[in-house]
């Protein structure tokens, strides 16, 4: 398939690099200020070298990438809240041109799910967004294959940064501030970690799960109850450990809605994954609990989910 990539961050770059391996051609790519278009296919090394050296992917306008020839638009610009722009506008343009859209950007499906579905209904194109939840871990496709009605509850750990901080605080008895600084040095946490440690990132993912699970719910971040792990004292983890438990930032989609917060779970619980690992538990009507776990973030990991979605469109 011919693919246009909006966004040249870790995910967009990985999609460009790996497309050929999956048998696809990237015909256009854009970052926030520039674009490069080649109907014959872009050379990944050339584009990414230019991005590194000059901060632009090419000399064209981002609009040119949207108007280029492609079958699938991969939307991998940063997640924004509220109107979810510019990602939502990119999605709209592609659907109005009857093209497919594969999202890595959570904004459109977490904040404007109803609008996305409405545009999709009027288009020949389809919208898929496995990459928005848990990187390479098949979460939405698991719901899709079992059927939303067969899954009663989804819960788990969908933020690697928060899980890394809590794991290390517990294992090493270190303070929140110390581990956060360490995570920032390692690139596990961003300079401004608030999106991760305040639970927003995990909440957006569970809102997306809820939207897929509960047809017509059309939830947004505002509908979720969110509490983070910001400045949790090490003493809380010590007390949990004394009792054979640990504290993890857990998200849940239940009958009561979407909730994210620090929770006590047994140390040997399947949900008590270590480091940056993610895990999702599906409670099913007839098959008990199922667990999918793995790497929930990162360029190649998220690109893997993008290609899984593109595979479904072929």
């Amino acid at each position: 398939m011919n693919v246009a990539v909006m966004g040249a961050g870790a995910v967009g770059s990985s999609v460009l690099e790996l497309a050929a391996e999956y048998g696809h051609t990237v015909t256009a790519m854009a970052d926030s200020s520039s674009a490069v278009v080649d109907p014959g296919g872009l050379d990944a090394t050339t584009v990414l070298d230019r991005k590194n050296a000059e901060g632009v992917v090419g000399s064209a306008d981002p609009e040119d990438a949207l108007e280029a020839e492609y079958d699938v638009l991969v939307e991998a610009t940063p997640t924004t809240l509220g109107d979810a722009e510019p990602g939502f506008g990119h999605l709209r343009t592609a659907l109005e041109r009857d093209r497919h859209v594969v999202l890595a950007n959570k904004g459109p499906v977490a904040e404007r799910y109803g609008d996305v579905r409405e545009l999709e209904a009027e288009s020949e194109g389809e919208v898929r967004f496995e990459a928005t939840v848990g990187g390479a871990i098949p979460v939405l496709s698991t719901i899709e294959s079992f059927g939303p009605d067969q899954i009663t509850t989804v819960r788990g750990v969908l933020n690697g940064t928060a899980n890394f901080i809590l794991t290390r605080m517990q294992n090493e008895g270190l303070s929140y501030e110390h581990v956060l600084a360490e995570a920032q040095d390692l690139g596990v946490a961003e300079a401004d970690p608030s999106f991760d440690v305040e639970g927003t990132d995990a909440a957006l993912k569970f809102v997306i799960v809820a939207n897929v699970l509960r047809d017509g719910a059309e939830l947004t971040l505002d509908d979720a109850t969110v509490e983070g792990i910001h400045e949790l004292p090490a003493s809380a983890l010590d007390l949990a450990e004394e009792d054979g438990q640990t504290i993890r930032l857990i998200g849940e989609v239940t009958e009561d809605g979407v909730r994210v917060g620090p929770r006590l779970i047994p140390e040997n619980s399947a949900l008590a994954v270590s480091g940056t690992q993610n895990i999702v538990q599906f409670e099913t009507t007839y098959a008990g609990s199922l667990y999918n776990s793995g790497r929930g973030a990162g360029g190649p990991e998220t690109a893997t989910a993008v290609f899984a979605d593109i595979g479904h469109l072929e």
Binding site: R155, A236, I250, E252, G261, P262, R263, P266
Partner: peptide
Amino acid sequence: LRVVEPLPGGEAV
């Protein structure tokens, strides 16, 4: 005060 609650259903392995 912050309350860290248990997770019902999370204990199942």
